[in-house]
């Protein structure tokens, strides 16, 4: 029934624009929170919200099947796995300590450039966005189609998966099997021959490394 309701609702004037801006506003705020929150487990939970809003955007693009798959795979499966991994690792280390490089003795202009260098990854990502955006608005030769998405999109997808795209489909199942087996192997491997000598050696090496890092 929802499949019949969605297209006329979206074709009303202004509805798609308003829905787009509401969803993207929520999504951008939540994504910034994911990146900026200092407690990693909280940002893992906020990521559920990002995936929920992105599945709303999939609904706007009339991809109902993929919206539900997005919620089931990402918002439930992957986020749950991330949270479990965070609980298995040390919760004491969750709060990240940012190292602040700061030198008061530099002249003002050099300070500005030092901050640019310190935030180089920020500048790289901002400029990558600017590059992508200018490439997008420079390109307007896309063969846009006026047709709406066919109401039996799931039927089209299923038929394509078992006819034209059957080999990638089979290979993706093999890939999933291999990756899950590898993940189980990696996560299960208990080191059985871990005796006290090895622990002492590892601790000594770690201490030396910490000393080196502090002297640097």
């Amino acid at each position: 029934m929802g499949q019949d309701l969605l297209p006329p609702l979206l074709s009303a004037p202004g509805v798609e624009t308003w829905a787009f801006y509401i969803l993207t506003t929520l999504s951008i705020c939540l994504a910034i929170a994911v990146l900026a929150d200092r407690v990693v487990i909280r940002s893992g939970f906020i990521l559920i919200g990002v995936f929920g809003t992105i599945s709303g955007i999939f609904l706007l693009l009339s991809a109902q099947f993929l919206a539900l798959a997005q919620i089931m795979i990402y918002a439930v499966g992957i986020t749950l796995m991330v949270v479990i991994a965070l609980m298995l690792t040390n919760p004491r280390l969750e709060r990240e300590q940012a190292v602040v490089y700061y030198d008061e003795s530099l002249p003002p202009l050099a300070k500005i450039f030092a901050s640019c260098k310190r935030n180089l990854s920020l500048w790289v990502s901002v400029l990558s966005f600017v590059t992508l955006y200018s490439a997008l608005i420079g390109e307007n030769h896309w063969p846009l189609s006026d047709q709406a998405v066919s109401p039996d999109a799931v039927k089209v997808l299923g038929e394509a998966l078992v006819t034209n795209y059957s080999i990638p489909f089979e290979f993706s199942s093999v890939l999933l099997l291999a990756a899950l087996m590898g993940a189980v192997m990696l996560a299960k491997g208990e080191s059985k021959n871990r005796d006290d000598d090895n622990v002492a050696i590892v601790d000594e090496a770690k201490k030396q490394e910490n000393n080196l890092a502090l002297q640097r």
């Binding site: 796995m81 993706s172 999933l176 990756a179 899950l180 993940a183 189980v184 990696l186």
Partner: peptide
């Protein structure tokens, strides 16, 4: 892409655990 992302998340988290 969803399939590969699921595999990537599983393997990546297993590597982090290891």
């Amino acid at each position: 892409v969803l399939t590969v992302a699921a595999a990537e998340a599983a393997v990546g988290l297993a590597v982090v655990l290891a």
